[in-house]
Amino acid sequence: MEESNWEPKVIGFLCHWCSYAGADLSGSARLEYPHNIRIIRIPCSGRVDPMFILRALQNGVDGVLVSGCHPGDCHYQSGNFHARRKFAVINRLLKYVGIEPERVQFSWVAASEGPKMAQVIKEFVEGVRKVGPNRLFKDEKKDGE
C-alpha cells in the first residue's frame, strides 16, 4: 500500500461482558467509530495472553486495544486485575523493543458505555495514525527473508 493512503489497521480484544457489548451499543445508537478496528471477542480481558498482542504486532497490525470491565466489575471477579498486571509487564517489554506506547492500549469500558467505547476507539486509532505504520517486525521479516 502506498504510504500516502495508509490507513491504520488495529485489533481490539474486547471482553464479551462489557466492552464488546459497549461497542454493540454504540452501533445500535448509530454512533460512528473508525472502521480501522477489527474486533475479536474474548470471554474476559484476563483471557488475553501477551502472545496475542505480540503475534498481532509481528504480523503487521499497527495497534492493539484490549478493553475490559471496570476494576471491581469483572464478570469473573478478578480477570481484569490479572489482565492489568500482565499489561504492566508487557508494556515494559514493548517499550524495550521499541514499540510506541500508542500502539498498545488498555481501557475499561462498561456495557452501558456505548459512547465511551466509540470515543476510546476513535482516540486509539488517531494515536496509532500519529505514530504511523508499524514497520518494526515487517522490516525484520524482510531482513530474514
Binding site: I42, P43, C44, D49, Y76, S78, G79, H82, K86
Partner: peptide, 8 residues
C-alpha cells in the same frame, strides 16, 4: 465459568 484466566 470459562473466563480463561488460567489459559493465559
Amino acid at each position: 465459568h470459562g473466563c480463561g484466566a488460567c489459559v493465559s
